[in-house]
Amino acid sequence: MSKLFLFLAAAFLFCSCSNSKPTQLSQDSVNTDTAVYSIKSIIENDEDCDSTLSKDCRIVDITYPEFENQPALNDSINERIQKIYTTETSYGSVSDMVQGFMADYRNFKTDLNFNNRVYNLMSKTRVLSNDQLVSLKTESYIYTGGAHGGSFVAFINWDPQARKQISIQDVLKPDTYDSLQVIAEKIFRKNEGISSTDPLKQYFFEDNTFVLNENYLFTPEGIKYLYNEYEIKPYSSGRTELLIPYDSIRNLLKPKSAISHLFTAN
């Protein structure tokens, strides 16, 4: 991951972003479940807001699954949610982060520049698949008093047998990551309508060099990469998705891995 991306991600999470309403969190289909989990929810309303008179009292609304007998997976989910609101304070849990967020909001309300702007911290983690591969999508929105809020999407790919996250290196043959990036760049340039020789100066890639990030989802069609707002394009351009079909990288993939059932069935 480029240094530029780390800087931009930090800037997004720290930015005090007119009082806009949260973006609508999308719905995703859920496959037949095989692992047992329950849905946890954390909700906080503005203490000075009458919820019987206003629908805009909600400050925090976080939902996420908690799996039975999968403590490492639950830790990964909690760590991912805690990245939504990054400050100098290190929080030990999602609940602690929420309390810190609410405390910061109360302090903000005493500021001369408050102008009745309301903080928002919304996050929903969904189980997209739950069989040989557990796939999760965390979609979040945060507003902390500035010109606009920001949204962020992140994925978790989990091997329930090995009880660990599945990295891209886990599914690639040795020494093939560079080949993956070459194929990905060709797809990216085609999607963006630019030639193989056009410079990438309009994007935020370090040294104008294309690079895959670490935010991807193993889907039945291929590996889907997602660049969030500010990551490689201005905020106004939104997110960028890049799907690498398995057919285009079949010779790079290990014949046996936690995702092999996805591309051998194609």
Rank of each mutant, 00 (worst) to 15 (best):
S18F: 10
S236E: 15
L8C: 08
S151L: 05
D178T: 13
F12G: 13
Q169N: 14
E206R: 04
I62Y: 00
S20W: 01
D207I: 01
Q161D: 13
S257R: 07
N115S: 15
T138K: 01
E44Y: 03
S167Y: 05
G145R: 00
L112M: 11
S20C: 09
Y37A: 12
S38M: 12
N266I: 10
G238P: 04
D131G: 10
Y216G: 06
G238C: 02
Y85D: 11
E192T: 06
S18H: 09
Q70D: 08
Y216K: 07
Y85P: 06
S195H: 07
D159S: 09
K124D: 07
R126Q: 15
E44L: 00
A162P: 05
T264V: 11
K3N: 14
I223S: 02
G149P: 01
A35I: 06
N116G: 01
G146W: 07
I42W: 08
K21V: 08
I183D: 04
T52H: 07
D50V: 11
P234E: 06
F205G: 04
V30S: 14
N130F: 01
D48Q: 00
A147D: 13
R126L: 12
A10I: 05
I249D: 05
Y203C: 13
F155Y: 15
A162V: 07
S179V: 08
L172G: 11
L128H: 00
N113C: 05
A147G: 09
S38N: 15
L25D: 02
N19T: 04
E192I: 04
T197W: 00
P160G: 02
V60K: 03
E241M: 04
D61P: 03
T197K: 11
Y203T: 14
S2Y: 05
D175C: 04
Y246F: 15
G222R: 00
A11N: 11
N45T: 11
F218V: 02
P65F: 02
N69W: 05
D28E: 12
Q27N: 14
K21T: 12
L217E: 08
V127P: 00
K83Y: 03
V36E: 15
M1R: 11
G222Y: 01
S93C: 11
S196L: 14
Y85A: 04
S135G: 10
S129G: 12
S20N: 12
Y246P: 10
L121N: 01
A10M: 09
D198P: 03
R80N: 12
K109T: 15
S54D: 14
V98S: 08
D56S: 12
S16I: 04
R250V: 13
Y246L: 10
D207E: 07
S16N: 13
T176C: 04
T23P: 08
E185T: 02
F210I: 11
L128I: 06
T219C: 02
P255W: 00
Y225C: 04
I77E: 00
I187Y: 09
T240W: 03
Q27Y: 07
L212A: 05
Y141L: 10
S140W: 00
E241D: 10
K224T: 07
R250L: 12
F152D: 00
